[in-house]
Simulated scan of single mutants.
Amino acid sequence: MSSEEQAGAAVPEKNLPAEGTDGPETTADAPGGKPRRRWLRITLISVVVLALIGIGGAVAAGFYLKSVESDIERFDAFDSIPEETRPEVVATGALNMLILGSDSRDPESTGGSRADTIILAHIPKDRSGAQLVSIPRDTWVSIPRTKQGRGGRDAKINAAYAWGGLPLMVQTVEQYTKVRIDHVMMVDFAGFTEIIDALGGIEINSAKKFTSIHPPFRTFQQGKQQMDGATALDFSRQRKQFADGDFTRIKHQQQVIKAILDKAASGGILANPTKLNSFVRATSSAVSVDKDMSLVDMAMDLRGLRGNDLTFMTNPTKGTGRVGSESVVFEDADKASSFYDAVRRDAVEEILSAGK
């Protein structure tokens, strides 16, 4: 089997580009004598996360952000994409962000490149909310060919990251949805353990009772339950016990993300320096952004959002099937076409209606 065939199967997923090392410069003001640039990067990245839960404006006002934003290490997501292949901007002022997630400590990980969570986040021009659309990693799509000759055929969508990294992943999502991507955020879901613990745990409502397939083989009861970071991460990893597999995994991930946002918005972390410090540090280790994103502008732009303003959806599909030896997810082409047309036009009511 060729390397492309291996990647197009259940793509052994990881490693996302590693965050670079920080400079040697230190300051006495940095907690524990940590490098100054590291601390400033932590602060800035966390402001974006806090902004998404509606309290970023208060934090942004308290930190000296503009002067240090240039110190943040970023990744390149767009430069190598031919401009003529990219969709045109239809709704000026709306934002579309591609959120790619990995789980670097997943017990099922076999190494290699991966993007096992793919979310297209649409933020309307009026900033009244955000719609987060999960695209199953096994969705069968056409992947563009790279200059190195990789791709150029149909495969599972997360093969794009294995074959061409971030640029090919962006190009593939843009070609599939015909939605122009403005920014990219990368999240290591394993880092959510520390974020959740910093918040004092989260509440999750499990649709059914089931037992984890990973040690220590936790049993999740049906109904509402409090989870610490390790338990919530375990909950979000499970898929093999369910008839719809990855679709349940996506629902669990969406539940965990929503619970984090709700807890952070209502948990009083701004009034608790210890909690805020822990949350800031944990967030920085889990999140990185593209080189063109202004964290300050994003924080101020989204300062009014609350967890209830976020709507989670899943890419329109016809279910699972097989292509040769591969188990894949087939899109519902007609529904997907009308859905992403609404996203392009920033037609929020149509997006919400089509996503039901």
Results as ranks from 00 to 15, higher is better:
Ile250Leu: 04
Arg74Tyr: 08
Ile123Val: 15
Ala77His: 05
Gly165Cys: 12
Ser113Cys: 01
Trp163Gly: 00
Phe220Thr: 07
Ala28Val: 14
Thr274Arg: 11
Pro82His: 11
Ala190Arg: 10
Ala77Pro: 06
Lys147Leu: 03
Leu100Trp: 01
Tyr64Asp: 15
Pro124Phe: 04
Thr139Arg: 02
Lys275Arg: 12
Asp334Lys: 14
Ala354Cys: 10
Glu349Ile: 00
Ala259Tyr: 11
Asp301His: 11
Ser67Trp: 08
Gly54Ile: 02
Ser288His: 05
Ser80Phe: 06
Ser288Pro: 01
Arg37Gly: 11
Val329Ser: 06
Trp163Lys: 00
Gln226Gly: 04
Leu305Ser: 00
Met169Ser: 15
Lys224Leu: 12
Ser278Trp: 02
Leu166Lys: 02
Ile53Ser: 08
Val289Ala: 10
Thr92Phe: 08
Tyr64Gln: 15
Ile269Phe: 03
Asp76Ser: 14
Ala60Trp: 09
Val280His: 01
Phe242Ile: 07
Leu65His: 05
Thr311Leu: 14
Pro82Tyr: 11
Pro144Ala: 10
Glu5Pro: 00
Val48Phe: 07
Glu194Gly: 10
Ile195Phe: 03
Ile195Ala: 04
Met300His: 09
Val173Ala: 09
Asp290Arg: 08
Leu295Ala: 13
Asp79Cys: 09
Gly321Val: 09
Asp103Asn: 11
Phe330Val: 02
Asn205Cys: 08
Gln253Cys: 01
Val348Asp: 00
Ser338Tyr: 07
Ala207Asp: 15
Val187Glu: 06
Pro107Glu: 06
Phe279Ser: 08
Ala94Asn: 03
Glu83Thr: 14
Asp228Asn: 15
Ser337Cys: 00
Thr21His: 11
Arg249Ala: 03
Asn96Ser: 11
Gly268Ser: 01
Ile135Lys: 03
Phe339Trp: 13
Val47Asn: 13
Arg344Ile: 04
Ile202Pro: 07
Ser206Cys: 08
Thr314His: 09
Gly111Arg: 06
Ser113His: 10
Asp76Val: 08
Gly304Phe: 05
Arg137Ala: 00
Arg36Ile: 14
Ser67Glu: 15
Arg38Gln: 15
Arg36Gln: 14
Leu44Asp: 06
Leu310Gly: 01
Ala121Cys: 04
Lys178Pro: 03
Val173Phe: 07
Asp71Gly: 10
Tyr64Met: 12
Gly23Pro: 04
Glu108Val: 04
Ala299Trp: 04
Val48Cys: 12
Gln241Gly: 12
Lys178Ala: 13
Arg105Phe: 05
Ala259Thr: 11
Pro216Ile: 03
Met300Thr: 07
